[in-house]
Design a protein around this nucleic acid. Structure first.
Lengths: 196, 196
DNA sequence: GAATATATGGAGCGCCGTTCCGCTTGGCAA
DNA sequence: TTGCCAAGCGGAACGGCGCTCCATATATTC
């Protein structure tokens, strides 16, 4: 069609249109609310309806479900990651800080029905979320784990990535309410297993 | 319709028709083969096609997917459960037997792509499989765990159910190939955490 | 006010699980 | 051997899903 030689006299596409920004915000708010009630597996249609937009709009702003999930939870993930140094400074020992930080992470997962499971079920689709975790959480845990290893509290040869994934998997299984099963107990035992 | 006073001269309905039995066998074989290649989440249509039967037939014999899965794996589950006493008798110690039995269970799960995940994702749908596990595997593990506790090798206050579920969850997460992650290492640490 | 890139919405497609019912067939009685 | 009929069968059909596509509407610029 076009020869594509149009000069760029208009504002370079860096600024989005006002309605586009408004819809993106509406989508984020709606998704956050729907995720709480219906879980992160909520039908795309429902999220679009809650935001009062059409299917096309949601896919334009968030090509994959993971993009939406990442956008919604990025702030909370950051908060969790940033708590690492603080805990390390205030806790009685690095291992205590490790326990507290893991608690924080578990709390985060616990309020996100199906998040951990969804990530596991569709790792490719949620690769962006996976990347966010690697990028923010793994380094935070690495610091704490390293400190605990320096004091000799942790001797097991486990990587931060392995540990955080194990915790995620265990939480994924514990999301379902079951009085017989307590994911936190399993995690406590796992942490104990990391000691000598 | 009928008044129900028909005398029972015919064979009581306990015996199924020959073609029905043939189809059930064909479905079991087809499902076992499809599960290996496509995972336990394989579309129902595909299984029906592989068995050369229609949709109605598969639902007639196995009203839920879990019924089919249970039928396919029951034998392997039994084998795993029955290995418990043998291991306990031959292993160097109850804790060693525990490790070996858990290895067996992990092997079983490892060859069933998506089994553990499927059970977690749809616990209601797979309640029959869940029941099979509780019925066969929990007692087997309980014996080993009890023996290990008697010798003082295991001190943690964990129930057999909790332990087997934790292992299942960890395997569910480790099913995806990922050179960075080794589910067996996590499980080893967890077992270590069960010791003093 | 006109022009145009940008953004929108929802119909439509393909895949899924599951149901339902008209047709087929195995097995028994006569 | 034949006729009968309940047990068994197949697959069309339905509703719900994720995702795409493009005619239409709108914000923005000149």
């Amino acid at each position: 069609m076009s020869e594509g030689d149009k000069p760029l006299s208009t504002t370079p596409s860096s600024a989005k249109r006002a309605d586009a920004r408004r819809n993106e915000r509406a989508l984020l708010d709606a998704a956050a609310s729907v995720f709480v009630t219906d879980g992160v597996d909520a039908p795309v249609r429902r999220i679009a309806a809650a935001a009062g937009v059409g299917m096309g709009t949601i896919y334009r702003h968030f090509p994959t479900r993971a993009d939406l999930v990442v956008a919604v939870y990025r702030h909370q993930v950051d908060t969790c990651a940033e708590a690492g140094p603080t805990l390390l400074a205030t806790a009685a020992s690095p291992f205590a800080a490790l326990r507290q930080w893991v608690d924080l992470f578990v709390d985060f997962l616990a309020t996100k029905h199906g998040l951990a499971a969804a990530m596991r079920n569709d790792p490719d689709g949620f690769s962006a979320l996976h990347a966010l975790f690697i990028e923010r959480l793994v380094p935070a845990l690495a610091d704490i784990l390293g400190a605990a290893r320096e004091t000799g509290e942790v001797t097991a040869d486990i990587t931060p990535y392995q540990l955080i994934r194990a915790i995620g998997d265990i939480c994924a299984g514990g999301e379902r309410v079951d009085p017989e099963y307590d994911a936190r107990l399993t995690i406590r035992l796992l942490l104990d297993g990391c000691r000598s």
